[in-house]
Design a binder for these strands. Structure first.
Lengths: 247, 247
DNA sequence: ACGATGAAAATGGTATACCACTAGCCTTCA
DNA sequence: TGAAGGCTAGTGGTATACCATTTTCATCGT
C-alpha cells in the first residue's frame, strides 16, 4: 500500500499517476464511504500536493467509474448499486469465459502447471481459514487466466471491471461463509483447464462467477429480488429458465 | 460536429467535457494522424482555452485509450496497430454476442420491429451505394442491440471499444468493397433475432464481426502475418465452418 | 569533417491566484 | 412565527506563472 509519504517527494514523473493510484487503492479498499465527497483543497493538503494534479487524478478516476464528478459540486466516490454489481459481474463472466476458451487453446503446459500451483496455494489458504490470502490468490488466479489469454484488450477490460468490483468483492468475501462451494467450482475449473476443454472451462467459470457475485448482490441488498436475467448462466442455454422479466 | 466556437464561449459547466468531446470526435474522425503530437500550448490557443482544462481533457482521452501520454513528452494520438484491432474486435464480438443473447430474451416485439426498420434503412443505403449512411446506420444497429441488452456496463464497454475502433472502422468502410457479404450477414442476424434464437444470433454476430474486422486488419497492414489466435470466431463452434482461417 | 558536449529554447508538470457557482444561514417582511 | 430573499463563506473551474526535463542546434575539439 502506498503511503502519503510515497507521494509528493520526488517529482520525477507522474505525480498525477501516483495520486490516482493512491486514491484508487483507498477507494477500492473501501477506506472511503460511497457517496463521500472528496473536497479538493482538503485532499490536496492531506496528500501534500497541489490541486492541479489532484484534479487530473480525479478526472481519471471518474473515467474509471470509481468517482463521480458532479457539475460544480466536485467529486464523490461512486456508489455501486446491487444492480450495478450484477451487470458488471455479468460482463466479467462473459469476459472470463472468453478468456478461458483462449487459454485452453494457447496456454503452454508450463502455464497450466503454474495455475495449478496457485490453485493449491489457494486451497492451502482455504483450509487454514486464511481469508486474506485466499482472497488474494483467488484474484490472482482469475487475473492470470485472463492474462494468459494473450488478448491485451480483454485483460484491460477485465482489470477495469475488477477495479470497480474489488471493494465489493472484498467486503463480500469477508462476510461470505460458503467458501466450500467456491472451492469446488475452482476445482472443476482447473480440471477443465487441465483437459483443455474450452467449452467446459468457460461454462464452469461463468457459473462460478455468477454464483459468487449473485450471492453478494443478495447480501448487500437482501430485498433485491433474485429474479433477474443479468446474472451469469451458461451462454448457450436454450430455454433453461424463463427470463423472469424485469423492466 | 462541434466547432471551435461551440467551445470556450459559455463557461457554464464542463469546459473539459467539451474539449474532451471535441478532441475525441476529431481523433475518431481521423482528423489527426496516429502518432501526431498534441502540444498543449498550441492546442490550447487554437481552442481558445487555457492549458488546464485541455490537460484534464487529455488525461480523460488517455484513459479512454485515444491518446497516449508519454512522461515529459506530452500527448500523442495513439496508434492502433493491426494486432490491437484484432484484439479489440475479438472482445467486441464477445460483448455483442452476449448482448445478442440477452436481447433475444428481453427485447419487446416493438424493439425488434424498430431494429428491422433500421435494417431496411441500411439496406436502402446499401443499394444506393450511400456509404455514409450505410456506415452510420450500421453502427446504430450494433449500438442499439447492445443498448437493448439492458446491461449498462455491457453498453459502456461496447462504447469504449467502439470509440477506439471507430476511426479504423470508418477508413475500412471507405475502402472495403465487399458490402454484399456484410449485408447477407446482417440479414442472417436479423432473421435469428426475429426467431429469438439467442444462440444463432450470437454466433452470427460474432462471425460477422470477425469477418468485418479481419478484413480490415489485413487491409491496413497487408504484411501483418496472420498467425494469431486472438481473432474472432464463433464461441462454441463444434466444427461448424472453418473459421475462415486467419490464423 | 564528424562527433560529442553544452547551452538555449520549447514543452510538460506543478503550484497558485482569481473567478463563478452553489449552498447554508441570517435577516426581514408579511 | 414562518417563509422568502439576499448575503456570505466555501468549493470547483479556469487561467497564468514558474520550475523541471528534454531536445535540438551550434560550437569546439579531436
Amino acid at each position: 500500500m502506498t503511503s502519503l509519504d510515497d507521494i509528493a517527494q520526488t517529482s520525477q514523473q507522474g505525480l498525477v499517476t501516483k495520486v490516482a493510484s493512491y486514491l484508487r487503492e483507498h477507494i477500492v479498499m473501501d477506506h472511503f464511504q460511497p457517496g463521500q465527497r472528496l473536497p479538493e483543497r482538503t485532499l490536496a493538503e492531506e496528500l501534500q500536493v497541489s490541486r492541479t494534479p489532484l484534479r487530473e487524478a480525479l478526472k481519471i478516476l471518474a473515467s474509471e467509474g470509481l468517482v463521480e464528478i458532479l457539475p460544480n459540486r466536485g467529486a464523490v466516490v461512486s456508489d455501486v448499486s446491487p444492480l450495478d454489481v450484477k451487470e458488471k459481474a455479468y460482463v466479467l463472466s462473459v469476459l472470463e469465459q472468453a478468456a478461458a476458451e483462449l487459454v485452453c487453446e494457447k496456454a503452454t503446459d508450463r502455464d497450466i502447471t503454474e495455475l495449478q500451483a496457485l490453485h493449491y496455494e489457494m486451497k492451502a489458504a482455504f483450509i487454514r481459514g486464511d481469508r486474506q490470502n485466499y482472497f488474494r490468490i483467488n484474484q490472482e488466479i482469475h487475473d492470470r487466466i485472463v492474462a494468459l489469454s494473450g488478448n491485451r484488450s480483454l485483460r484491460e477490460m477485465h482489470g477495469y471491471l475488477c477495479r470497480q468490483l474489488y471493494r465489493v468483492r472484498y467486503l463480500s468475501n469477508e462476510k461470505s461463509e460458503k467458501w466450500t462451494t467456491a472451492m469446488a467450482e475452482h476445482e472443476a475449473i482447473m480440471a477443465a483447464l487441465e483437459a483443455r476443454d474450452a467449452t467446459r472451462m468457460g461454462q464452469e467459470l461463468r457459473n462460478h462467477l455468477g454464483k459468487t457475485w449473485f450471492k453478494f448482490a443478495a447480501n448487500e441488498n437482501p430485498d433485491a429480488q433474485p429474479s433477474d436475467q443479468t446474472d451469469a448462466k451458461p451462454t448457450k442455454q436454450t430455454k433453461e429458465s424463463p427470463p423472469a422479466d424485469e423492466q
